[in-house]
Design a protein around this nucleic acid. Structure first.
Lengths: 91, 91
DNA sequence: ACTTTGGTTCACAAATAGGTTAACTTCGGC
DNA sequence: GCCGAAGTTAACCTATTTGTGAACCAAAGT
């Protein structure tokens, strides 16, 4: 069980809604979880991040919880606003 | 000069339109170029790939040439249709 | 010269992501 | 208990991506 999965279990315990919708589609949630992890690691709130991205905290929450898909540019800027870099490679 | 840049120079030589629009935004083109490279490496035509993805060759061409942004799911399925895997990590 | 194959580009329609506001919940500190 | 801070969700709207069909170009073969 890797870090991501541990993290997921923790969130399932905290939020019933999360647990329920999670079962519907593991894949779509992965990226949101990764992003939340990245944000919490840096120790920034959704509101602070939203301001850096000139958007609203609700949009951040949606990305981390609900979003079924995300644009590459959104992913990139989210991470860059956290001082991180997105690395993509093909195997 | 890495492989990607070599590849870009080659394409610039072949297509004036590509060269011109390329200058407008390097970033947006990178992903299309990577995808084309991946496809050519496997030796599959745009039409063949399009059929695997239940879409049309024009959509594939657009992604490789024009697309300013792309959904993560699109990126993923494009690569999976080529038998490749998308790997994302955060630095 | 004609045809076929691979690719490009455009225009329009359909689907979906992201911006925004507002109401709601949870949690910690007072 | 009350309050503020952090987060969640829903609804609406706009912007953008993707699907699709058609016209076009270039190269290669016949």
């Amino acid at each position: 069980m890797d870090d991501l999965e541990k993290y997921i279990e923790k969130r399932k315990g905290k939020s019933k809604k999360f647990a329920k919708s999670f079962e519907k589609g593991y894949e779509s949630f992965k990226i949101g979880i990764l992003l939340r992890q990245a944000r919490e690691e840096v120790g920034v709130t959704q509101k602070e991040l939203a301001e850096k991205l000139s958007t609203k905290k609700s949009a951040i929450s949606r990305i981390e919880n609900h979003a079924e898909d995300i644009r590459l540019s959104t992913l990139k800027s989210y991470l860059e606003a956290l001082g991180k870099k997105l690395q993509i490679n093909i195997q």
